[in-house]
């Protein structure tokens, strides 16, 4: 494992998390959450947890994002904070 790459991905994950809770558009927030999940996936692959990484990529980032988008589509897209 290359620690410089690891630190860069940790920073990306933190930036994605902060962006996901600060964006006012809920659809954008959900998509950023999907990007966050994929970065988390890369981090876990680097740490040797390959099974966890591909479960997260398919179930967490894929199915979770689809569920979120369906729910946002049925409700309001704007949020006040």
């Amino acid at each position: 494992m290359i620690w410089q790459l690891d630190v860069i991905f940790c920073l990306f994950v933190i930036i994605c998390a902060i962006a996901a809770i600060n964006v006012k558009d809920l659809l954008a927030a959900v998509i950023i959450l999907g990007a966050y999940s994929f970065f988390m996936c890369i981090l876990w692959t680097e740490m040797g947890a390959v099974d966890v990484a591909f479960t997260e990529a398919s179930v967490g980032a894929g199915v979770g994002t689809v569920l979120f988008i369906a729910a946002v589509n049925k409700t309001k897209r704007r949020s006040k904070d």
Binding site: F68, A71, T75
Partner: peptide, 10 residues
């Protein structure tokens, strides 16, 4: 946060 979707994202 006050929005429920934001709470779920958290």
């Amino acid at each position: 946060k006050k929005n429920l979707v934001k709470k779920l994202i958290g």
